[in-house]
Design a protein around this nucleic acid. Structure first.
Lengths: 219, 219
DNA sequence: TTACTAACGTGCAAATTTGCAATACTGTAA
DNA sequence: TTACAGTATTGCAAATTTGCACGTTAGTAA
């Protein structure tokens, strides 16, 4: 889980409570991002200062974010969107690994709720390498989620069961997701490097990364 | 780096100094391992207690190990053995990814200097999941090291340069190592699961894991 | 409205982790 | 031996992070 204890996720997203939580979340995130932008070393940005600017107690900071870095980046717990999950199907034809990589990318995108511009965002990661590291770590969390989804989908797929008796659905899913995540992680580098990017650009980069992947593996 | 500030690595490994450091290192490691074995939650094992048993100050603990977990497992900074590095050659024929996976395994092995039995070791990881997590993280450190080696080897390989003009040596190396590490990580699970294992057993598991990998990717 | 429950915010205490500076120790070369 | 340089060990202080317990507030059902 990337997100912190995250006050019970809330039921009704329009309740007074949920809106207040969202406001507090954004306040902390923006306070952290600004502080990160105005200090040379991230170590000089203290939780205490961020909490004060967001008008909460330091203890409460950790109810919203696991760490300073998460707060700066605006990362929250990864969740697979209902539609995205439904759109992922195991069927004959098509590269499953590639499909999963795009699934990962989609989940990764929805787990980032930053309120700052991509430009600003990239500058921050540029200035503070710790941030980039955290962002990569975040992929691990997403991986676990997606592995579960893929395991289920494989298990309920007639087509797959008919053709792959030797390995368990879970082992296969783990392998697919691990490899897909590896490729995704590689693609992230150039994706993040270019500020003004559309999702299509990112997709293109991921496709190109896959070309390298195939070249390396299908030798 | 998995290892801590690790008092300057030492020049002469037979000096009074180096031997004393080794003794201290082992003392801390064993103290931590024993403490981990006798507590239900790793959180109840305090650095203070471990340091006391090893007869050093808590501050010194961190000169030897980055964390409690590293101390329990006996992990130290990954280094590529001279011979292992020399034995790795880029040449026509043979699966480079697979070769790198075994290289990773080799480096991984030499970076673990635990003084407790494999049996005991596995039991500890079984009891404390945090330990297993740390051990996996350690692969990241090894990855960085190996990526550098592979980059250099690719760059100086006539054969490779002749056949792969489109991608830089570094990009290619990164991809190869990332994928190999993914497969290795997968293989680690069953490798660790069976206590009384020879290196040959582990190799066999890695080979079998590769079979699954190929099945998944060469679809 | 009232009363109940779950969620939230907070203070406090303990543990982890790092930087810095002071002190002690080891190996070496004069 | 003595002096010197480089390492090691340590204490101290600050920041991060988590668990626990307490009081407050928001949603809900009677």
């Amino acid at each position: 889980m990337t997100a912190a204890t995250q006050p019970e996720a809330a039921g009704d997203p329009n309740s007074h409570r949920a809106r207040k939580r969202a406001r507090t979340w954004t306040a902390i995130h923006l306070a952290a991002a600004e502080a990160a932008a105005t200090h040379d070393r991230l170590a000089d940005v203290t939780i205490e200062a961020v909490a004060e600017k967001a008008e909460i107690s330091p203890r409460t900071f950790f109810n919203y974010f696991r760490s300073k870095e998460d707060a700066v980046l605006g990362l929250r717990g990864a969740v697979i969107d209902r539609d995205v999950a439904a759109g992922f199907v195991v069927e004959p034809g098509g590269d499953l690994v590639e499909k999963v990589a795009f699934l990962l990318l989609a989940v990764f995108r929805t787990s980032n709720h930053r309120q700052i511009s991509q430009q600003h965002y990239v500058e921050l990661m540029d200035r503070h390498p710790e941030l980039a590291r955290k962002r990569f770590q975040h992929v691990d969390d997403v991986e676990a989620l997606v592995t579960k989804l893929v395991t289920d989908k494989l298990a309920e797929s007639e087509h797959w069961r008919a053709t792959h008796a030797e390995h368990s659905a879970e082992d296969t899913a783990r392998m697919i997701v691990t490899v897909a995540a590896a490729v995704m992680r590689m693609a992230m580098r150039p994706i993040l490097a270019h500020p003004g990017q559309t999702e299509a650009d990112a997709d293109a980069i991921l496709h190109r990364t896959f070309a390298l992947f195939r070249e390396v593996t299908h030798s």
